[in-house]
Nucleic acid binder design. Structure first.
Ligand SMILES: [Mn+2]
Ligand SMILES: [Mn+2]
Ligand SMILES: [Zn+2]
Ligand SMILES: [Zn+2]
Lengths: 146, 146
DNA sequence: TTAAAAATGAAAATGATATTCAGAAAGTAA
DNA sequence: TTACTTTCTGAATATCATTTTCATTTTTAA
């Protein structure tokens, strides 16, 4: 959190941006969560305590966080771009429950290695990847079998 | 191709749909390609020979093909939904060149196995997945190094 | 202070996708 | 064939997330 704020401030400075209370609030709220927020969702959350904040400001802040490398953009195919704080270099991928919307994060170094091998076979240089498994989570399965 | 047409006809019949020359043409063009078409792209291609065809008709046909299981919807993050013919059960994933837009298809059974293991660990049942590697293809790398 | 630059937020624009609707075409049963 | 019903088509319009515009406010450096 401290670390991400420092990275962001450095990036903002480099870009010649000014610091505002709105952006600080959005950043704090964003970093303080473990969720995968859409602009709309984060906007509504912040709005509860700060009704004066604008949707566009939240939107611009999230895009900026991604540019500065402290957030990643996600797309789980529900028509809304989502954002999550990028903490350090700990990459992870996602299991997405299409029933309840819950997200499980996973890491599998063997998969990461294999995909590098695949890319190497084609002389392809990977910059980023997306690996999402869609299905039904344990909880939803349990509920359905009642 | 024959096979996909048969599957589609069966599905259309089940749904009580009528057969039209437009849909037949769209289907033939779609199946006859190896591309990953967006609605717009397929529309433009068909339009060259058949200027009377409507965009909405192409769009509805592609969605229908996906419903009937002869096409998959893809999203490479460029803001356009793409479609590709689903030939048999041969699943594959994609390498996407962010420089020239070219697509390389790959299959890696070990990755497929590993992702099943990951899901099992969480009691998660996978229905579908998406695994895309974004970066620079060999060709673009070669061009850049000139 | 003052001036310049950036930020905000409401409103409007954009652009891909989806829907509406009136007329056309296809299927069905004499 | 004809009459009738249902589906289809294509142009236009609607929808909806995202992005941009612009008048005003705020920040920052001089
Ligand atoms: Mn995550
Ligand atoms: Mn493919
Ligand atoms: Zn669930
Ligand atoms: Zn390329």
């Amino acid at each position: 959190m401290r670390e991400e704020i420092a990275i962001f401030n450095e990036c903002a400075k480099r870009k010649g941006l000014k610091s505002t209370s709105q952006r600080a609030l959005i950043l704090k709220t964003f970093l303080g969560s473990t969720s995968h927020y859409s602009t709309e969702e984060l906007y509504l959350k912040i709005r509860k305590n700060n009704p004066k904040i604008g949707y566009a400001t939240v939107h611009r802040a999230l895009k900026l966080f991604a540019e500065c490398g402290i957030a990643t953009e996600l797309d789980f195919g529900d028509g809304q771009t989502r954002f999550e704080p990028l903490r350090g270099d700990q990459h992870h991928d996602h299991l997405v429950c299409t029933s309840c919307g819950s997200i499980i994060e996973f890491t599998e170094p063997k998969i990461e290695e294999l995909q590098e091998l695949v890319a190497a076979k084609y002389g392809f240089k990977i910059n980023r990847h997306r690996h999402e498994l869609y299905g039904i989570c344990a909880n939803c399965t349990a509920i359905a079998s009642n």
